[in-house]
Simulated scan of single mutants.
Amino acid sequence: MTILLEAQNLSRFFGPNIAVQNIDITVKRGEILGFLGPNGAGKSTTMKMLSGNLAPDNGEIRINGFDLLTQPKQAKAQLGYLPENPPLYRELTVGEYLKHCARLNRLKGKALKSAVDTVIDRCGLGEVQRRLIGQLSKGYQQRTGIAQAIVHSPAVVILDEPTSGLDPVQIRQIRELIREIANEHSVILSTHILPEVEMLCDRVQIISKGQVIFADSLAALHQQRLSSRLRISFANPPPIAEIQSLEHVASVEVLSSQQFRILYHPENDPTESLLIQAVSKQWQLQELVREQDSLEDIFMQLINFDTAAVETIN
């Protein structure tokens, strides 16, 4: 697939402080990239650099083939941006505001009218297009913010916390809209809502302390959810030392007199040998469950690992 946004070796410093250091980002056509990180990780700084609102100290950004630093007008014409706080004019109607945004993107005449009509339809704004933005619900204001980001049909759309402050119904509607947008555009989704990443994104990039600590497909992230733990129960349990002595068992945690948790290396699953021993020695196996980490668990493990690594280096 065609790469529509490519950033290489992005770095940004605020005095002696490193906000972002040597970050690489690529987004392909029709792809949703989830951009995650704890508060202060450098997400907002990165979003500002990708949208052309903040110049990097080092690195380069290309949007649909145009260099954002040397060809800013051409590059920004390929970009749609919804910041966390949408840039809405509350005293304008939805229709007036979207026409204004279309003019800012150099649309005129029939092309302008067609573009505005299209985003009003796509974003479900038909019933409120003549209402003042200041009188709209948070959900409709967010839809209007997304509409301004795509009114000029950009190659890349950056959405920063697009469901923040919405109720469950509005969140579902905005997520459906984001999926539809991704059919025609590349989307970078910055969010702290982990289930949202699972539901929407094709790839995930996690940043901590200004550096990327994970960058891979959602499938690869899901693979990490298969943790190296088994929960087992026996009606006739053996001594813990006997379980511990089984091949590939790293350690055993006693949960009760009959229930145990087995830890093992991901590449050496002891399940088969465990089953053979349980049958041959009549341990009367009652339960064998492969425990899974939640996406939140994985996120915290990655963040904590990164923090520990930094402390070790220092």
Rank of each mutant, 00 (worst) to 15 (best):
S280I: 08
F305N: 13
P270L: 05
F305G: 13
D293P: 02
S257I: 06
I303S: 02
E296Y: 00
Q292L: 14
T271F: 02
V254E: 07
I303D: 02
P266M: 09
D269S: 14
L255I: 15
R290L: 10
L288F: 00
W283C: 00
E272I: 15
Q259M: 07
E267C: 05
V252K: 03
L295S: 01
L302T: 01
E253D: 08
Q286W: 07
Q292K: 15
E272A: 14
S251F: 06
Q282M: 08
P266E: 02
V279L: 10
S256Y: 01
E287V: 09
M300D: 05
E291R: 05
I262T: 04
Q301C: 07
S257M: 09
L285F: 05
F260Y: 12
S251D: 12
S273C: 12
Q284G: 07
D269F: 09
H265Y: 08
T307H: 10
E291I: 15
A308M: 04
V254S: 13
M300V: 10
F305S: 13
A250H: 11
E287P: 04
V254K: 14
Y264I: 05
E267F: 13
Q282I: 01
F305T: 13
F299C: 03
L263P: 08
L255T: 02
V252F: 07
R290P: 05
T307V: 12
I303C: 06
V289R: 12
Q284T: 07
A250Y: 08
L263W: 11
L275S: 03
D293H: 15
L295C: 06
L255F: 03
V289L: 13
T307L: 14
H248L: 01
I276V: 15
I276H: 10
P270T: 03
F299R: 02
D269R: 09
L275T: 04
L274F: 06
E296M: 10
R261S: 11
S280M: 10
L285I: 04
A250C: 03
V279N: 00
Q301T: 14
Q282K: 11
Y264R: 00
R261Q: 11
H248N: 12
V249Q: 07
Q259K: 11
E253W: 01
V254T: 14
M300I: 14
S294Q: 05
I298F: 03
L275G: 04
S280W: 00
I276M: 09
P266Q: 03
Q277W: 00
S273K: 14
Q284D: 10
D297A: 10
I303H: 01
W283R: 03
I298S: 07
R261E: 08
R290K: 12
R261D: 02
W283Q: 01
L295G: 00
F260R: 01
Q282V: 05
Y264F: 15
N268H: 13
S251T: 11
L288Y: 07
E296Q: 14
L275W: 07
S273P: 04
I262F: 06
D293N: 13
V279G: 03
Q284I: 09
A278Q: 03
E253M: 04
Q258L: 04
W283T: 02
D306Q: 14
Q286C: 12
I298L: 13
S280H: 11
R261F: 08
V289I: 14
S256H: 05
L288E: 06
L263G: 09
Q284S: 12
S256E: 01
